[in-house]
């Protein structure tokens, strides 16, 4: 479903070149649960931003269902994110001034068409992550683990092709982390493609495949089972 071919990224600031990615190649198949393991400072965030179409590679191709995303305009990429990608961030990134339910519905604000059953879908997702009784709470009334579960429901509201998670358990205690990872397992069982970026080995081990990065290159690819 996803293929990176020779993806390079170089930042230019004040005339200085800072290469971050030196040519990344890998494939992710439909329904795969993949972990990208990388210590901090190895271009992990940059790779994630490129996978999420938040940033464009300097060189190389990013094929998403055989479509080269590097040729798309900013507006087309926005539409792509809206329709096909769901994000889960390390810091949850919920909108504090609106309710849990409205947070989940947020991506639909920018959808081409607003599904009639949007509200039911959001409630179903909140039920799935165990927050069916908190839909009218404000995010700051919830624990970190609960907030991350809201973020997962939000990432799934558009029924995206790809769920992209950036250190989803990085700010959580081990119990909450386990809850989140179990939800990921369940989402995976239902057939959705998941990419988790992490530097924690036990988080990566939950995936089918681990891609390890080192110094802006793919160091190894291994199957966990």
């Amino acid at each position: 479903m996803i293929e990176l071919r020779g993806v390079k990224k170089t930042y230019y600031t004040e005339g200085k070149e800072t290469p971050v990615l030196f040519g990344i190649d890998f494939k992710i198949e439909e329904g795969d649960y993949t972990a990208i393991m990388a210590p901090s400072g190895t271009g992990k965030s940059t790779l994630l931003n490129i996978l999420g179409t938040l940033d464009k590679p300097t060189e190389g191709k990013y094929l998403f269902r055989n479509r080269d995303l590097t040729e798309l305009s900013d507006d087309e990429l926005s539409r792509m994110r809206n329709k096909s990608i769901g994000f889960v961030f390390q810091l949850f990134n919920l909108l504090g001034r609106v309710s849990v339910l409205e947070n989940v519905l947020l991506p639909l604000l920018y959808a081409e068409t607003y599904p009639k059953e949007a509200r039911e879908r959001a409630l179903r997702l909140l039920d799935m992550v165990g927050l069916g009784d908190r839909v009218h709470f404000k995010p700051n009334a919830l624990s970190g683990g609960q907030q991350q579960r809201v973020a997962i429901a939000r990432a799934l509201i558009n029924e995206p092709d790809l769920l992209l998670a950036d250190e989803p358990t990085g700010n959580l205690d081990s119990m909450s982390s386990e809850e989140i990872l179990q939800i990921f397992d369940e989402i995976h069982r239902k057939g959705r493609t998941i990419v988790v970026v992490t530097h924690e080995r036990d988080v990566a081990l939950r995936a089918d495949k681990i891609i390890t990065m080192k110094d802006g290159r793919v160091f190894s690819e291994e199957r966990t089972r």
């Binding site: 938040l54 900013d74 507006d75 926005s78 994000f87 990134n93 909108l95 604000l109 920018y110 558009n158």
Partner: peptide
């Protein structure tokens, strides 16, 4: 700014 970033991530265009 974080709110704007989030909205861009979930599909808001610059024009939105």
């Amino acid at each position: 700014v974080p709110e704007i970033g989030l909205k861009r991530a979930v599909g808001a265009t610059a024009n939105d």
